[in-house]
């Protein structure tokens, strides 16, 4: 069985979560995380990071920006000529 330390395990994390690691490396990493509270906590927070940032950077199109876009395209294209 391949030995994996926390640091080398972290290097493999994205490939691990995407399921592209060779089977023996995947099994070694699974075993390490199962027995390492630090890595289990790290994996949880690593997986939470995209969700937290996705929620925090959500943006909705303001009405004035939409109106400016239409006016811009009306001036430069054949679209939005008819209100």
């Amino acid at each position: 069985m391949t030995h994996i330390a926390c640091a080398s395990g972290v290097d493999l994390l994205m490939d691990f979560l995407e399921g592209v690691l060779p089977a023996n490396v995947n099994a070694a990493l699974e075993e390490h995380v199962a027995g390492c509270a630090r890595c289990a906590a790290f994996v949880a927070s690593y997986q939470a990071t995209p969700r937290i940032l996705r929620d925090a950077t959500e943006a909705t199109l303001p009405a004035d920006v939409e109106a400016s876009l239409k006016a811009f395209l009306r001036a430069r294209t054949t679209a939005f000529k008819n209100p």
Binding site: C6, A37, R38, A41, F42, I52
Partner: peptide, 13 residues
């Protein structure tokens, strides 16, 4: 090659 932070510290994010 071990994490220097504790599990609690690593989890809080």
């Amino acid at each position: 090659g071990k994490h220097t932070a504790t599990p609690t510290e690593l989890q809080v994010v």
